[in-house]
Simulated assay, not measured.
Amino acid sequence: MVKMDLELITTLFRTSIRMATPILLASLGGALTYHAGIINVAMEGLMLISAFFSVVFSYLTGSALYGILAGMLASIVISLLYSVFVSFLKANNFAIGFALNILVSSLTLFLMRVMFQGKNAFNSPDIASIVELKLKSGNYFLDNYVFNFSILTYLSILIAFLLACIIYRTSFGLRLRVCGEMPEALKAAGIKVGFVQLWSSILCGALCGLAGAQLSLYNVRMFSRDMTGGRGFVALAAILISGGKPKRILLISLLFGVFDALSVKLQSEKIAPQFALMLPYIMSVVVLLLFHLKTRKRLKNA
């Protein structure tokens, strides 16, 4: 009985980490644009376009690395398009973000049906997956709770701490925060707000590209229609709850990963699968509501 409980905990932990990694990477990317004054609602589309091109190039080249690079490039292109409209043409970021999400959803479906004979999903053993950090220490805890995860999982944790230093301890981070908080001061210093936002969008595109690659080349090793399933909006919730702080984003992403893992587990139980799939998003709404109520209370007491 104890052994079964341990195996269940281990499975839930490993699934939680796997599910949390794309959300963490996308959230860290969105945190950069958040500090630059843009609430990025296009992350869903950025992850989806990356997932598609990651699978396509991984399949065509037989290399996960080329797939990741292709996914990142595609995501950066869409992110730059978003930035041009929002930062330079001063369009509404919510309207453009949702428009790009719809565009990417339709574009990936069209390309997949053209390239793979009308299919809504594509899966092949020729798709090269992202490698794990394969280590066998002989210690159960290390082998199951520390080692043998995707390379991008370790990279995402490293990026979280690296971004915390960049945002709060470098001149670029200072410009980024001033861009979002006091853009007039940035203009007075002779620095163009649009270009700071442009750079934040490029970095956001790169990280969302990694998120899409993790999702399609490691979590499931396939591409299916709208496979991101709202993870871009979960990432946005993580950003808003954390205030764009990378270390808090890391913890909140892990929390969402746990709920995602529980939804997977519940699907194998005698529970309606629709309810199980709803669980991560229900928790996102609940957490956002609690955060909103806490913020209102703090503002009233100020």
Rank of each mutant, 00 (worst) to 15 (best):
A185N: 01
A185G: 11
A185D: 01
A185P: 04
L186V: 13
L186I: 09
K187T: 15
K187S: 14
K187A: 12
A188Y: 14
A188F: 11
A189T: 08
A189G: 12
A189K: 12
A189L: 13
A189E: 15
G190H: 04
I191A: 13
I191F: 15
I191H: 08
K192R: 15
K192H: 15
V193D: 10
V193Y: 13
G194N: 12
G194P: 14
G194C: 05
V196C: 04
V196Q: 08
Q197H: 05
Q197F: 00
L198N: 05
W199H: 14
W199E: 10
W199G: 13
S201V: 06
S201T: 06
S201H: 12
S201E: 06
I202M: 06
I202K: 14
C204M: 10
C204F: 01
G205S: 08
A206D: 06
A206C: 08
L207I: 05
L207G: 00
L207W: 13
G209R: 04
A211Q: 02
G212P: 01
G212M: 00
G212F: 04
G212V: 03
A213P: 03
A213Y: 06
A213K: 03
A213Q: 07
L215H: 07
L215R: 04
S216F: 01
S216L: 09
S216G: 06
L217M: 07
L217F: 02
Y218F: 08
Y218G: 04
N219T: 11
V220R: 14
V220K: 15
R221H: 11
M222W: 07
M222P: 10
M222Q: 11
F223T: 03
S224V: 07
S224G: 12
S224P: 12
R225A: 13
D226W: 05
D226A: 12
D226Y: 01
D226M: 10
M227A: 07
T228D: 09
T228V: 11
G229D: 12
G229W: 13
G230E: 11
G230F: 06
G230D: 02
G230Q: 07
G230P: 10
R231S: 08
G232F: 02
F233I: 02
F233W: 15
V234D: 00
V234Q: 07
V234Y: 09
A235R: 05
A235D: 01
A235Y: 02
L236E: 01
L236V: 12
L236H: 09
A238I: 05
I239F: 00
I239E: 00
I239W: 01
L240D: 10
I241T: 06
S242G: 04
S242V: 03
G244T: 00
G244P: 00
G244S: 07
G244N: 07
G244I: 03
K245F: 10
K245Q: 15
K247C: 14
K247V: 14
K247Y: 15
R248D: 13
I249E: 03
I249M: 04
I249G: 06
I249S: 02
I249R: 06
L250F: 03
L250E: 04
L250I: 06
L250M: 11
L250A: 05
L250Q: 04
L250Y: 02
L251P: 10
L251W: 12
L251A: 15
I252E: 00
S253V: 09
S253Y: 06
F256A: 02
F256V: 01
G257C: 01
V258A: 13
V258D: 09
F259V: 02
F259H: 05
F259I: 02
D260G: 10
D260R: 15
A261F: 01
A261K: 03
L262M: 11
